[in-house]
């Protein structure tokens, strides 16, 4: 028992998990237990926690892809725009605005939307891995232009759709649990298996720590980068589908706006070093849940939504500082000086 505990506490996801539980407990106490109440209506589970999971599903998916990218010392700030593109394509197809020959087929819409996300990801990966542009610039291109492309697809309008099948992506239930949860489990499960059961994870950490040395041991760094940016793009497309199914339409201006910051924050909270290196996808997913629950909590406490953004930005800087060696040295030096003063 003790051994299991020790082994558990060594895992990267341990600390985020504790933080998450504390946030949940805090909410439970503030709401006098109402927070934890789950009710079953029509065989479907409802409750605040279920809301967090459902609303956080996009973020969990994005955080999964973002973890791998941040582990290489890169970043992908185009995920929000890719979500917009994916939503725009899917909704326009369901609506019959584009590709009328599909007759609003939901399956075709989903496939094409994910395909578009994948292509966007390949584009990012190409710029980063082959043209060797800094990831922030490479993905910023799509971040700005992507929203433009989405606007061009929807001809600058907000597309609304009526399709119960499509709504299911966000609002559906299987065995009483919300459908997005299953999407998360499937995609994150895939990532965890892919990075853990193959040598992909080891190679990724190696590339993140020292790309030159990794190249010199024979790792195909270019291909690795291409792969992770592609995955990130495809995942963002799925998140875009969930988002558009949630709002029952495509709003290119606001879909996924600013979510890249949340995803980076989630990964940072999960304890992955943003400079690259060691990573843990489960930890990032818990990080995403934390970000989502912070949002919920802060809103529940009556703080205006606008402050959340400021809070998140500050949080990122604080976490980065806590990871910075120079900052640690500074703090330790301070402590030692204080101790010396006390000692003498």
């Amino acid at each position: 028992m003790r051994e299991t505990w020790n082994r558990l506490s060594e895992k990267q996801y341990f600390r985020p998990l504790i933080i998450f539980i504390i946030i949940l407990l805090f909410n439970g106490i503030v709401s006098k237990g109402e927070f934890f109440t789950l009710s079953i209506v029509d065989g479907h589970l409802y409750g605040r926690i279920i809301d967090i999971v459902r609303n956080g599903s996009k973020l969990m998916i994005l955080a999964g892809g973002m973890t791998m990218i941040l582990a290489t010392g890169g970043t992908d700030i185009s995920v929000g725009s890719i979500m917009a593109i994916s939503g725009a394509i899917a909704c326009s197809i369901v609506n019959g605005n584009i590709f009328p020959s599909f007759n609003g087929n939901v399956a075709a819409a989903i496939i094409l939307a994910i395909l578009a996300g994948t292509v966007s990801g390949i584009w990012n990966g190409f710029l980063v891995a082959k043209i060797k542009i800094q990831p922030i610039v490479a993905t910023m291109i799509l971040m700005v232009a992507g929203r433009g492309i989405a606007q061009l697809i929807t001809r600058g309008k907000i597309v609304t759709i009526t399709s119960e099948t499509y709504y299911f992506i966000n609002g559906g239930y299987i065995c009483g649990l919300p459908f997005p949860l299953f999407i998360v489990l499937f995609l994150v499960g895939f990532l965890v298996l892919f990075t853990g059961r193959t040598a992909f994870g080891l190679f990724l950490e190696s590339v993140g720590c020292n790309p030159t040395a990794s190249k010199y041991v024979g790792i195909k760094v270019d291909r690795m980068l291409l792969a992770i940016y592609t995955l990130s793009g495809a995942f963002a497309a799925v998140a875009g589908l969930i988002e558009s199914a949630g709002i029952k339409g495509a709003d290119c201006n606001n879909a996924g706006l600013g979510i890249e910051m949340d995803a980076i924050l989630a990964v940072a909270i999960g304890g992955t070093n943003l400079m690259g290196g060691r990573f843990s996808i489960p930890a990032s997913v818990i990080g995403a849940l934390i970000v989502q629950s912070i949002t919920t909590t802060v809103l529940a406490l009556g703080v205006p939504a606008a402050y959340i953004r400021v809070l998140k930005a500050l949080l990122i800087i604080i976490i980065c500082l806590s990871q910075s060696k120079q900052f640690k040295d500074l703090v330790i030096k301070r402590k030692m000086i204080n101790r010396k003063v006390v000692g003498s």
Binding site: C209, T212, A213
Partner: peptide, 12 residues
């Protein structure tokens, strides 16, 4: 810069 992967363990 070209040899070790500093943050990884010896066995890795």
């Amino acid at each position: 810069t070209e040899g070790i992967i500093g943050e990884l363990s010896i066995w890795e």
